[in-house]
Design a protein around this nucleic acid. Structure first.
Lengths: 126, 126, 126, 126
DNA sequence: GTGGTCTAGACCACT
DNA sequence: GTGGTCTAGACCACC
């Protein structure tokens, strides 16, 4: 279980965790019925509060991506990774829309933005 | 002075205000030395707290886009609109980077995302 | 705002709160756009942790019964009380089904249970 | 010994077990002095922890429905099935009371609930 | 003033 | 061991 917390980030820790778990579901690092780390175990590993991890797990369960069984632990739900993918794509869609609105409001042309887009896509270190 | 507040939006009201003022600087609706509405006047017009408008103006002054003179009001700073444009573009850059990271994490290809980008650009209702 | 907490109950406090708020929506004691007590205010009044009240409000928001605006407070969502009623009725349905299953497993007849039902309905002190 | 565990249920496993054993006492499938399956045997059969089966047996012994003899096993207590019946009926009573309270809080009339009651009674698949 | 997040513990129930 | 709930504080952002 490889999760990296950026404490300085504006994104709440519980959301960083759930985002990274979703990403691992999509990339098939986590598969159906896989057992997630225990709330307390992950909290200790990440050196954060157990409640914060629990909040991340609750959030994922709410969205149907994991299932938690009392006394046993949390498991990846038996749902197609496609669903997670769809959810992430709708986020990409929303983020892109905001970027485009700003671009238009500062007078960028489509070509300028496309160039910027390609630049970032290739440069990305991840 | 045409400013629209979306109370339901996730974006803080003070940021909605400063964003729209910046956009008007870029589009030359607001020019150097133009007088902005008074804090209380705008607050009344938008039916929000005067403190929120004050925060938006403070925010803009901090970034050097407006100048407030005690007892006189707030004015567009004597700065080239290019500076505002640059600031917005760096925002576009950041937003685009986030969108691209998410896109990659859910397995989108460059071509897929370019297609999505063009779709949104054309569709945009603003 | 009249909310009664039974600390001895097996039902979690946050659920007791949300149940009672739902009941007040149904009985029209709370109407659309009404402002709920602040998280901290209600916590102080009920002498419980603010986090517990917040959890109740989060739970209600999740289900779409209230809307929370940062810095302003929580409001009854603009949704028909019928929706809440439906939700409660489906709970009644589920509870009744469990009672009936147990009744059958201990050999009660339909008439015996109906009699019991009428007895409780009339006796109820609420 | 026919016991079915629903792992997804909200009802704790140890309670599912004890409920089903009680039902078998009432229906006379299990009679006085009958030997129950061994803790380990039942645990293996149901593919659950032996501790969970032990908890169910302890629970039943506490209520006086079974007797455990060290080194020999657990037996149905020499008690009239009527006692079990009484215990289940008091549960039915409690469950029904909860359902009726909720029904009243959402404005159901006695007739509406009676109709619902009859519907569920007949429909029941068990 | 409001809510949003987080901590570092506690106690309890289930396996 | 596991998760579920709760406490009593803290700090931050928004209005």
């Amino acid at each position: 279980m490889q999760i990296i917390i950026q404490n300085s980030s504006e994104i709440p820790i519980y959301e960083q965790i759930s985002m990274q778990i979703k990403a691992q579901i999509v990339s098939a690092e986590l598969k159906e019925h896989d057992l997630l780390p225990s709330v307390r175990g992950l909290a200790k590993e990440l050196k954060i509060s157990a409640l914060t991890v629990k909040k991340a797990y609750d959030y994922l369960e709410e969205q149907g991506f994991i299932v938690t069984v009392h006394g046993k632990g949390s498991f990846i739900a038996s749902t197609n990774a496609e669903l997670v993918k769809e959810e992430l794509r709708s986020q990409v869609d929303a983020d892109l829309e905001i970027a485009i609105q700003k671009a238009k409001s500062c007078g960028m042309t489509k070509d300028e933005m496309m160039e910027l887009f390609l630049l970032i896509w290739e440069d990305e270190s991840c």
